[in-house]
C-alpha cells in the first residue's frame, strides 16, 4: 500500500532529555493509526511534529513523499490537526472559529459553509455554532476543533485525544465520523482511552521512552499473549499470608491485589484450578476469567515478564 506518512530517524530533544529517539516508520494511506503509551512517552510530541506544530531536531518527515521541512507550505495544506488543549479563539463563535480557519486555507465561503453544515450535523454541533467558544463546555469546543481540522479537507488528520472532555453520546458520534473518514484520509491519533483504541484502529503504535516498543493490529500484538488468561478471585478476606501463599503457586504470572481481590495471569486455564486448590476451603465471593486486552499489554510488569 502507498505510504502517506513516513518518518526517517526522527528525533526530538528537550535540553538534554530525549523525547523521541530516532523513529523510523511509515503509515499507509487511508489507515487509522492509534498511538498509546504512558504519560511522557512522546505521544503528543510525535503528533506535534507530524502536524508541523514543531520541528524535529534531527531526521525527516515525509507526507505523500514531500519533505515537511523543505516543502513546508505544500505539506501544511495536507494536514488537519486537533491539539489536546482547546485552542479556539474565546471571543469568536464556534462557527466563526471554523470559518476563519477555512479562510486561512483559502477555501471558498460556499465550500466552508457546506462542510460546516455537513460535519456539524454529524457531530450534533448545530445548536452551539453561534455560541462564543468561551461560553460552551470543553467537550463542545473539542467537537468544533475536529470540524475546524476538517474544513480544508486535509489528506492526513492528526488528533490528540479526539474525544477528550466529551460525554458518551458525543464520543460515539465522533468515532462514527472517524470511522467514516477512514480510508479517504489517513488518521493518526493519540488516546488514553484504551477501550476506544481497541474498538477503532487498523494499527496501534505503543510508545515508551520516545521509542516504539510494539507496532501492529491489536490481534497481532496479542498473539504473543494468546495462551495467557487473566484471572480474578475475590475472597471474603484476602490476608497477606494468603496472598503470599497464592503468589508462590509456580504457574501464576504477575500476581497483584486490590483489597480482597487476587488478580493474576496464567498460560492455561488450569492455572485457575492450581490457585483454587491452594486456596481450598477459604470463602470466595466472586470469580472472573478474561481474555487479555490492550490494558494488559501496556501493563509494564506483565509486558516485561511475558511479552518481551
Amino acid at each position: 500500500m502507498e505510504a502517506s506518512v513516513t518518518l526517517k530517524k526522527v528525533g526530538k530533544l528537550v535540553k538534554d532529555k530525549t523525547i523521541l529517539a530516532g523513529l523510523t516508520f511509515g503509515i499507509e494511506k487511508g489507515s487509522l493509526v492509534a498511538i498509546v503509551g504512558d504519560n511522557d512517552a512522546g505521544k503528543s510530541t510525535i503528533l506535534r511534529l507530524l502536524a508541523g506544530f514543531e520541528n524535529p531536531d534531527y531526521g525527516n518527515i515525509y507526507l505523500h513523499g514531500l519533505n515537511t521541512n523543505k516543502r513546508r507550505l505544500e505539506t501544511r495544506k495536507m494536514v488537519g490537526y486537533v491539539p489536546h488543549e482547546n485552542d479556539l479563539d474565546p471571543w469568536l463563535t464556534l462557527a466563526q472559529n471554523i470559518k476563519f480557519y477555512g479562510h486561512l486555507f483559502r477555501v471558498d465561503s460556499a465550500t466552508i459553509q457546506r462542510r460546516l453544515t455537513h460535519y456539524a450535523a454529524q457531530l450534533d454541533l448545530e445548536p452551539y455554532l453561534n455560541e462564543l467558544a468561551s461560553r460552551v463546555s470543553q467537550g463542545i469546543q473539542k467537537r468544533a476543533m475536529i470540524i475546524r481540522s476538517l474544513i480544508h479537507n486535509p489528506d492526513v488528520l492528526i488528533m490528540d485525544e479526539p474525544t477528550g472532555f466529551m460525554d458518551a453520546s458525543s464520543i460515539r458520534k465522533t468515532w462514527d465520523l472517524i470511522e467514516k473518514l477512514k480510508g479517504d484520509k489517513t488518521i493518526i491519533y493519540v488516546s488514553n482511552s484504551l477501550s476506544e483504541v481497541e474498538q477503532s484502529h487498523d494499527r496501534i503504535l505503543v510508545f515508551n521512552g520516545g521509542r516504539i516498543i510494539l507496532d501492529g493490529h491489536l490481534d497481532k500484538l496479542l498473539e504473543s499473549t494468546i495462551e495467557y488468561h487473566q484471572f480474578q478471585i475475590e475472597f471474603e478476606t484476602l490476608t497477606d499470608e494468603l496472598f503470599n501463599h497464592l503468589c508462590k503457586v509456580v504457574t501464576v504470572v504477575s500476581p497483584n491485589r486490590l483489597g480482597n481481590i487476587f488478580h493474576f495471569y496464567g498460560r492455561t486455564r488450569s492455572v485457575f484450578f492450581d490457585v483454587l486448590t491452594a486456596a481450598s476451603g477459604l470463602p470466595m465471593v466472586d470469580l472472573n476469567v478474561k481474555k487479555l486486552g490492550l490494558r494488559d499489554l501496556l501493563d509494564s510488569e506483565f509486558a516485561g515478564d511475558g511479552l518481551t
Binding site: 508541523g52 507550505l73 505544500e74 494536514v79 490537526y81 485552542d87 479563539d89 474565546p90 486561512l104 486555507f105
Partner: peptide, 13 residues
C-alpha cells in the same frame, strides 16, 4: 496557548 500556534499551521511563512 490559543489561536496563534494553530494559525501558524496555515500555509504561510
Amino acid at each position: 496557548g490559543k489561536v496563534l500556534k494553530t494559525v501558524a499551521l496555515a500555509p504561510f511563512s
